[in-house]
Simulated scan of single mutants.
Amino acid sequence: MEHQENLLEVNHTSVTEFFLLGFSDIPNLQMLLFGIFFLAYVIILMRNGIIILLTRVDKALQTSMYFFLSNFSFLEICYVSITIPNMLMNIWTQNRNISLFECATQMCFFLILGGTECLLLAVMAYDRYVAICNPLHYPLVMNRRVCIQLVTGSWTTGIPVQIGQTCQIFSLPFCGSNRINHFFCDIPPIFKLACGDTFLNEMSVYIIVVLFITVPFLLIVGHGKIISTILKLSSATSRARAFSTCSSHLMVVALFFGSGIITYFQPKSKHSSGRDRFLSLFSTIVVPVFNPMIYTLRNKDVMVALRKLLP
């Protein structure tokens, strides 16, 4: 009996690194996947980089709306850089080991930037709400100081919360397998490797999901007054432009929040490794690839600035 207890204690404390399985279940497609993910990463960097450049050099884009958009583009670059380079390295070298500290660090930054994106999308929705529903007071309400405060709040609010959550998750004992059936260190696959009762940890995840995903999402979609205000606009051109701006933002919101809610609002027992990987691929690669297109192709100001920039 004593020998079994000692063996159990060793098992609980012996995990010092994990093994990211990634897409090792499809070995014949490794180089194809590397090419697809590398191309997607380059596209994300280039498109978001162009948006940041345009908002800096074109005076017509130096408004609060584009100030938030440039911050969002920079955030997207940081967000994908947490996962994609490491995934590409794992595929290229076939060395999938990651230390406990590196895994915790990756998860922490991923959660911080994900929470920042939720808050920043809510701030961008509020900016459009003020612009459409209270245009006369818009320059006063959304002045430079307020914009900087809103962006700073979006970037910093989640830092202590997500650091605390990461520490709580990695304080769990890990025993048995150290093989993470995922391509980066995310909460659901890490929970599957934890020993003992994770109920309190799961509840804390749900609470944080409500605060950082559900509440901002409800605030964004709850601005029903925007639609009625747009419909009252006398000019058809103004209505079309307002609808274009709002619909673009709602598309990004639906894609990002939808995948996040599905991923983190399930109990540990209901998670499927294949589905979790698909949702993570969708939110960390597919959505960031299309976000710049959604915001720019339907925005005449950005397209005009882009034509002026290109020779």
Rank of each mutant, 00 (worst) to 15 (best):
M31F: 15
Q94Y: 10
C246I: 12
H223D: 04
F191C: 02
I44A: 06
S81Y: 09
S14Q: 09
L100T: 03
L32S: 14
M124Y: 04
Q30V: 11
G196S: 08
A40F: 06
T13H: 14
I112S: 07
Y138M: 03
D25N: 14
T93K: 14
Q266S: 13
I213N: 11
R241H: 08
G274L: 11
T152E: 05
I261P: 00
I98Y: 03
S228V: 05
I207K: 02
L88P: 09
F19V: 02
Q168D: 11
S244G: 06
I148S: 14
V209K: 01
I77P: 02
F282K: 03
M124H: 00
A40P: 06
N6L: 08
S283H: 08
V42N: 07
V130K: 10
E2R: 02
P173V: 04
S14E: 15
I148C: 09
T237Y: 05
L75N: 14
C195G: 01
N143G: 09
L20Q: 09
V286M: 00
C175H: 06
L8G: 00
N86C: 03
F265S: 07
L150K: 12
K268Y: 07
K225C: 05
F199K: 15
I187M: 02
T156V: 12
S272V: 08
I36G: 07
V209Q: 11
R179D: 01
L111R: 03
